[in-house]
Amino acid sequence: MFSEIRLKERRLAIGLSQVDISNQLEINRSSYCSWESGRAKPNQKNLIALAKVLDVDVAYFESEYNIVNNFLQLTTANQQKAEEYVEELLQSQQSNKVIQLFPVPVLSDIALSAGLGEAQFDEYETEIVYSAAEQYGYDIAAWIEGDSMNPVYKSGEVALIRTNGFDYDGAVYALSWNDSVYIKQLYREETGFRMVSLNEDYPDKFIPYEDEPRIVGLVVSHFMPVVGR
């Protein structure tokens, strides 16, 4: 990439004015000034002429010239050391990158008992955790505890729930029953709901409608917090 800084430094180093160079190149001064200001770059014809006036190689005006020129003067062993050092710098730079995190309010230590609706969740405390990706399309965030939904839903993750009723068999819902909330695959049967765990070590559970189970909502996503709890 053409470097206006290197152009100006070379001109000053050999004691030429902008007018001196523009006259030798037979261009107007404003054109030359645009090269030094970075507003424009010389075409190949003017670049070759400019290098001749300033007594340098055409590659001199490249911003990487010093790096490449110095590297080529190193011994083979030192070139290898230089390459290794550059790799270390790149890795260090990448590890120090600022990663944007997105806050997610999660219901804190709350058992979602039967009868609670979306509007009532505002009465309860939340704690803030952070996700590496922005989360959309949910109404409630709650902790997942236990291993009954392994390997998909892991203990310590946050479940994102969209508050709605029952949509279809086999989807994963948050269901409130007997003062506890279960995150399970749900199937509607004639007299109740059948809850199915993904972990085969856990048997199915049947919940009769007479127990008044309440569907909190559909689990639309889940994530392991980057920071939190």
Rank of each mutant, 00 (worst) to 15 (best):
K45N: 12
P105W: 07
L50R: 03
A59Y: 11
D57E: 14
A49G: 12
Y85Q: 05
S34M: 08
E62Y: 07
L50I: 03
N46F: 14
Y60M: 08
S95R: 10
E84Y: 13
F61N: 04
K45T: 08
L54Y: 04
Y65V: 14
V56N: 01
Q79M: 15
L107P: 02
L72V: 13
L47D: 02
L54M: 01
I48Y: 07
S37V: 00
Q80N: 15
I67R: 09
E87N: 11
V56G: 00
S34K: 07
V56F: 06
Q93R: 03
A59C: 12
N78Y: 11
Q73V: 02
L101K: 05
Y85S: 05
R39L: 12
Q93L: 06
E88M: 12
F61D: 01
V106L: 15
Q44A: 08
S31T: 13
L50W: 01
L101P: 05
N46V: 02
E88H: 10
E87H: 13
Q73L: 06
E83M: 14
E83T: 15
I27M: 04
Q44Y: 04
R29P: 01
T76S: 15
V68F: 10
E36R: 03
K52A: 12
L47G: 04
L90C: 08
A82T: 15
N96I: 05
E88Q: 15
V68A: 11
Q100F: 10
T76C: 14
S37K: 04
N46H: 13
S30I: 12
V58M: 01
R29E: 05
C33Q: 05
D55M: 10
R39M: 14
S30N: 15
Q94I: 10
S34H: 04
Q100Y: 03
D55Q: 15
S31A: 11
G38L: 06
N69A: 11
S37A: 10
N66G: 08
A82G: 06
D57A: 10
N69D: 14
S37R: 08
V104Y: 04
N70P: 01
E64P: 03
D57V: 07
E62I: 02
A40N: 14
L74R: 09
L54P: 02
L72W: 01
S95P: 02
A82E: 15
N69G: 05
Q100T: 13
L90D: 04
V58W: 00
V106R: 07
F71I: 06
L90N: 08
I99V: 11
L72A: 09
